[in-house]
Write a protein that binds this DNA or RNA. Sequence first.
DNA 1: GTCTATACCCGGATAGAC
DNA 2: GTCTATCCGGGTATAGAC
Lengths: 193, 193
Amino acid sequence: MSAVEAGPSPEAAGVVRTPRSARAHQVVAAARTVLEAEGPEALTMRRLGEELGIRAPSLYKHVPDKAAVEAALIEEVLAETGAVLYQAVSRAGPPGSRPVVEALLAAYRAQAVAHPHLYRLVTTGRLPRAALPEGLEAWSGAPFDVAVGGDEDRARALWSLAHGMAILEVDGRYPEGADLDAMWRAGAAAFGP
Amino acid sequence: MSAVEAGPSPEAAGVVRTPRSARAHQVVAAARTVLEAEGPEALTMRRLGEELGIRAPSLYKHVPDKAAVEAALIEEVLAETGAVLYQAVSRAGPPGSRPVVEALLAAYRAQAVAHPHLYRLVTTGRLPRAALPEGLEAWSGAPFDVAVGGDEDRARALWSLAHGMAILEVDGRYPEGADLDAMWRAGAAAFGP
DNA sequence: GTCTATACCCGGATAGAC
DNA sequence: GTCTATCCGGGTATAGAC
């Protein structure tokens, strides 16, 4: 794992984004639109072709395969999420403080709930690391290090808590009447100093 | 959500398990074997037919569809996991104590790591609640209530932390050199009194 | 009541013509 | 760069043999 520090953008941290042709970019944009609006079942190559006014096989001139489209989407979302989390953390107070933990969790939850299908795509199953820019994954998670004041193990535990609450909320796993705001507060309290 | 209390078995808590024909039971057993050994891509109706020495279409005389097979598997695993977690919690010390939290997390992690494909099946995506016995889901999670001494919000946060750490570990999401034992300890410390 | 054969639909992907 | 034709694999409905 390369040493990447939290910051406002991946590029500022020395992470090199994957270059893509204009047409490939359109494919990825279409994929994002379809996935966000209609979910993963709708994300088919035929559907992406439709969206761009061409036949599905033609897509393969611009993009290697479906997995590559998804990887590109994951790259976009990791970069955006990392930036949002960094913003939240850098405004809330000194590293390691309770307000920072609260701000980080609030921002994390908001991202997940606002884009549930994207959130699942990025966080579920194995990550296609080979297709992602070196260092991007670590950079996007760096705000958690800031929030806990540097302890790696605690940072990973806090990230795990955030992901657990986010994915279970997005997947509708909590019981009907559960007070999710109160649960997120309890989570912040457990990691607040 | 019906009021279900933690206990050694779902039946003891008044949860009624779904009845199934002997042949249907064999189908579910085969599904478990295939899924555990080879993962979700291998879990196809044709493959289950092979396993039982019949053609795939014949399976539909015993089982409504593939989703029902998965739901039956989920039911089995929820019952088993709930029992294991109850065991762990009931031996470790008084409800709400730090040793109980540690024992619960250790048992939870062990279950997930021992059966990663089953763990993903049960915890990923939406739960097919309509196909599950009333109360089973709540019963299987009740040990978390015991572990935190009754606070619902804290119990849900602890469950979320456990799931977050378990799924990220099983999915290989932590960086190469991460000390996962230390992370789980940090998680327990956050929720230990 | 149990199984088989057949067939349909869908989705990913390739080959080769224009 | 786009097309058409085509293959493959997976879920599953139907018809009918025994």
